[in-house]
Design a binder for these strands. Structure first.
Lengths: 325, 325
DNA sequence: CCTTTATGTGTAACCGGTTACACATAAAGT
DNA sequence: ACTTTATGTGTAACCGGTTACACATAAAGG
C-alpha cells in the first residue's frame, strides 16, 4: 500500500506538505506542488479514507436504512439518495431492516461505529431513544416525525385523490384496502380515502391487510373478491396489491375497468407494464430520495435556512384500470 | 464519544486490558473482565470501527457494485449478498455504476480507500488492469470470467430451454430478442437459444435491442410486432421486455398464448403478477447473491477448497404465456 | 527450594492521515 | 533600516483502537 510517507519521500518533502497539496489548503509553493503531484501520479497514490476519518472523526459515508430493497418502491428511493449523495462526494452504507427492530439497531450502531456523517432512514419502527443517543444527523424518508426532519409524499391527499377519482368515475361500492397498521404512510393514505368517502354519497367497505409483499398479495386479492364480490372499485394499499387484485379480477372474468375499477398507490415502474395498465397515485420516489439526501447534506454542512421537513406532492396517474372522463 | 480510554479509566485498568476483553483474546482475570464489562455497559461503549480498521488495515465492509439497483433483477441479488454478508459480520458499501466505467472506477477506488475486505461486482464492463492493481478479493456476479471467481446462472442452457419449450409447444415462427451486446449474460442466453433453434426445423428471426430498461421496453415491443407481425412466439431478452411484448400483443388484439407465445428471462417477482402470468426462465437471483457472498467470504478467510466459480441452474417456469403440454 | 511455565496486566509503538505550532524567509509597510 | 505580514515547510501530537513486549506473580515441575 502506498502511503503519504512514500509520496513525501518520493517528492522530497514532508507528509504535511503532501497533505496540504491533497487538500488544497495552507501554503504550498508552486514548484513543490508540482513535485508532489508528480510523485502522486508516479506512485498511483490514493489517500486512505480510514486514516482521515479517524482523525476527523467523520467519514465520507452516509448510512441508508430501508425496510427492504426488494420491495419495488425502494430501489428508486435508493437511487435518488445515492445519486444526490454522490454529487456531494459521499458514499452509501446500505442496510435492510426488514421488520426487525434488532436489525435496525444493529445497523444504526454500525453506522455510528463507522463514523458516518449522517443517516437516512425509511424504516417503520423508530426507536427514539437510540436515535436520540446517537447525535447523528438523521433524515427520515417516506415517513413523518415531530422530532426529525423528514421527506415524504402527501399520503392523506393521495388517498383523497384516489377516492375522489373513483367517485367521479361512477363507482358506487368502493372497497378500501387498509395497509399494515405499523406502516405510517399506509395509514395516511387510508385515512385520506376514508375522509373523502365519508362525506360523499357512496357505500364503501374496508378490508384490512397486514403486509405489502408479493407473496401475500394474491391472498389479499382472493379474500377481497370473496368477501366483497359485488364491489365495483378498489383502492389498493399499494401497486403490488393493486396488480394482484387486477389479476384476480381478470381471472374471475370481470371486465376492467367496466366491472371493477382499480387504483393502486406508489406508481412503481412495473405498474405501467401491467395489463391493463394500472391507474395509480404516483409518489415521486426518486425525487423523494434526492430531496432527503439534499436535506441531509444541508444539515451536515450546517447551511442556514434548512427546511425542517419536505412534503412532496402526489399525482393521479390515469391509466386503464379506471374509466375515462 | 466514549472511547476505550474512558472505559479503561472507569474500570481502573489499561486500554490493553479493555481491548483484550472486547476481542476475547490474551489473558484476562475473571474479576477484571467483570469490571470491564460493567464499565462498558455503564458507559454504553461501542468500539470505533474506524480505529480498528486503520490498525488492522481491514474494515468489516464489503463493496457491492451493481449496474443499477433500479433494474428489478438486482434487488434480489443485493438482498442475497447482504443477508449472507451480515451473517458473517460484514456490512455493505453499495454502488451503482450505470453503464459508466468512470463511476465503476470511482467506486472501486472508494472501496479500496475504505479498506473493504473484498468486493462483489455485477457490472458489465470490467477494467482488468484496475481490478488487478487492486489486490482486493473480488467475486463476479451474474458474469463469467477467466480471471476471477464468479457466480452466475447457466445462460446458455437457459436460452436453450426457452427455445426448446417453444418448439415443443408448437411455435413455428419464433423471434429471438438479442439483448445489449455489452451485457455478457444477455449474449449467453441468446446464443443458447440460437444454437437450439438452428438444429431444429423451425423458422426464426433475430431482433437486436440495445437496452433492458423499462423506458425502452415498450419501444422494442412495438418494433417487434412491426417488423415481425406474423411471429407466433417470442423469446424475450428479459422479463421486462417480455412483459412489454405481452402488453403490446394484447393491445394489438392478439390472443395469448394462442396467437403468440412469450417466454421471458430472469423471473423477476412481478412476472407472476402480469396478466396473463409470464412464462419465463428463472435465474435464482437471491441464491446467486448468497453464493457470491459465501464464496467471497471463503476467499477472505482463506479457507481451503474454495471453488473457483459457481454455476447455478436455471429453470423453466411455465405460466400462462405459453401453451400447456 | 529453585526453575519453568502459565497467567494477568500495563506501557508504548503503530496504523495513515491532519493540523497546531515552530521556524525561516521574502515581501510590504512605515 | 526595522517591524509587520504573507508565504512556505517541517516536526510532532493526535485520532481510537490493537498488539509486541516487558514485567510481575502464581502455579507446576523437578
Amino acid at each position: 500500500m502506498v502511503t503519504i510517507k512514500d509520496v513525501a519521500q518520493e517528492a522530497g518533502v514532508s507528509v504535511a506538505t503532501v497533505s496540504r497539496v491533497l487538500n488544497d489548503n495552507g501554503y504550498v509553493g508552486s514548484e513543490t506542488r508540482e513535485k508532489v503531484m508528480k510523485a502522486i501520479t508516479k506512485l498511483k497514490y490514493s489517500p486512505n479514507e480510514v486514516a482521515r476519518s479517524l482523525y476527523k472523526r467523520e467519514s465520507r459515508l452516509i448510512g441508508l436504512l430501508l425496510p427492504d430493497i426488494t420491495n419495488p418502491f425502494f430501489p428508486q428511493l435508493a437511487r435518488g439518495v445515492e445519486d444526490e449523495v454522490n454529487r456531494a462526494g459521499y458514499r452509501l452504507l446500505l442496510g435492510n431492516s426488514d421488520e426487525s427492530i434488532q436489525k435496525e439497531l444493529d445497523y444504526i450502531q454500525t453506522f455510528a461505529q463507522n463514523n458516518v456523517v449522517g443517516m437516512i432512514s425509511a424504516t417503520n419502527y423508530l426507536d427514539h431513544e437510540l436515535y436520540e443517543a446517537l447525535a447523528l444527523p438523521l433524515v427520515l424518508l417516506d415517513r413523518t416525525s415531530e422530532d426529525y426532519p423528514a421527506v415524504y409524499a402527501d399520503g392523506r391527499e393521495g388517498g383523497r385523490i384516489a377516492a375522489k377519482a373513483l367517485v367521479e368515475k361512477g363507482a358506487k361500492r368502493i372497497t378500501v384496502m387498509k395497509g399494515p397498521s405499523h406502516i405510517k404512510p399506509a395509514q395516511d393514505r387510508f385515512r385520506g380515502a376514508i375522509e373523502y368517502l365519508s362525506q360523499e354519497e357512496v357505500d364503501f367497505s374496508v378490508m384490512s391487510t397486514t403486509s405489502y409483499s408479493f407473496e401475500d398479495a394474491r391472498g389479499w386479492a382472493e379474500e377481497l373478491f370473496d368477501k366483497y364480490a359485488d364491489t365495483d372499485a378498489v383502492i389498493a394499499s399499494n401497486d403490488i396489491v393493486g396488480i394482484a387484485i387486477l389479476h384476480e379480477a381478470l381471472r374471475l372474468g370481470k371486465q376492467i375497468p367496466e366491472d371493477v375499477q382499480i387504483i393502486g398507490y406508489d406508481d412503481i415502474p412495473q405498474s405501467s407494464l401491467s395489463y391493463p395498465t394500472l391507474s395509480t397515485i404516483r409518489q415521486p420516489a426518486y425525487e423523494m430520495g434526492k430531496q432527503a439526501a439534499k436535506l441531509l447534506i444541508n444539515i451536515i454542512r450546517k447551511e442556514q435556512e434548512v427546511e425542517r421537513s419536505i412534503q412532496l406532492p402526489v399525482e393521479l396517474i390515469e391509466r386503464n384500470t379506471t374509466r375515462k372522463g
